[in-house]
Design a protein around this nucleic acid. Sequence first.
DNA 1: CAAGATTGAGAGTTCAATCTTC
DNA 2: GAAGATTGAACTCTCAATCTTG
Lengths: 153, 153
Amino acid sequence: MNDSAVATENTLTSASPAGPTDQSIFALLGAAHALEARVEDALGRAGLSGPKYAVLNELVAAGKPLSLSELAGKLSCVKSNMTQLVDRLETEGLVRRVSCPGDRRLVKAEITDAGGERQRDGATEIARLHVEFAAKVGAEDRAALERLLSALQ
Amino acid sequence: MNDSAVATENTLTSASPAGPTDQSIFALLGAAHALEARVEDALGRAGLSGPKYAVLNELVAAGKPLSLSELAGKLSCVKSNMTQLVDRLETEGLVRRVSCPGDRRLVKAEITDAGGERQRDGATEIARLHVEFAAKVGAEDRAALERLLSALQ
DNA sequence: CAAGATTGAGAGTTCAATCTTC
DNA sequence: GAAGATTGAACTCTCAATCTTG
C-alpha cells in the first residue's frame, strides 16, 4: 500500500473568493485535507509519518529489498526524494541500505526487524481508521465516490 | 477563497497492502492529489503557487491589509508559516509589510498593484478549471460528494 | 550516452523557543 | 503573563546538476 497524499498541507481550504462554483473544488480539497490529517494522526500514534509508512509498506508487500528507483516509482515521487526519505528511515533503524552485486549502480532498501514491527503498528492504526470510514460512508455514496474519482483522474 | 490543500504531497496514493477496505481512503486521497496537482498547474500558469494565491485572495476579499495572524487563521496554518510565506510574497513584490500604529505588535500584509494583477490571473485560471470540473461531475454525484465530505470532517 | 543515486537549492509545512509589545 | 511576530531545526517535496556505473 502506498499513501503519498498524507503530507502536511493546509493552506488551500478556507474561504471562497471568486464565486459559488469554486466551492466544489475547494470543499473537496478541504475534506481530503481533513482525511489526510486523520491518517497522519493515526500513523503518528504508531511513530510513523505517511511517507515513512508508505515505504515500509512497500517493502513488506514486496517481501524483498527494493531499489530506491523502484520505491520512487511505487510512491510516485522523484528519486531524490527517496534518497532523503531512506536517509531518515535508516537513521531511525527502520531500513538499511544494501548494495547490489549484480548491478553496482543499484542501492536497495531492506526493512529491518524494527521496521517490520513499526509497519505492523501502522497497519493496525490504518485498519482501525478504515473501519470508522466505512461505517460513516454508505455504499451508494461510495459508488458516487468511485465515479467522482474516475472523472477526476 | 482559500486553497491550502494545493501543496505538493504525493507519497500516500499507490498500492493497498492491508485489504480491500483501504482502497476507499487511499483512492480518495489519490484523487484529491490529482486534483491538487491540477489546481497547482493552473496557478502555475499565472505565476503563482497555491499558498501564494490563497494569501492574495484573502487580501483581495478583505479589501484591506490583514495581520499575519489573521491570515494564518484564514489559511488554517501556524503563524510562523505565514511569516515565511509573506517573506516570499514580499520578495516577489506582490505584498508589502506595513506596521500598525495602533498596536505596534502587529505587522500587516498589504497587497500591491502587481499582487492584484497576479491574483486576477490566478482567479481566471481557477475559474477555467472549475468549469471543467463542473462539466465532468454531475449534480447528483456532487450531492453525494457533499454528504461524503460532511461525514469525513 | 542511459540509468541509478546523490547533492544543493528552494518551497511549504510544523514545532519549540525567543523578542517585543500589550 | 499573554499576544503578535520572528527565528531555527526538522520533515516532505521538487528541480537541476553531478557522479558512478552500465
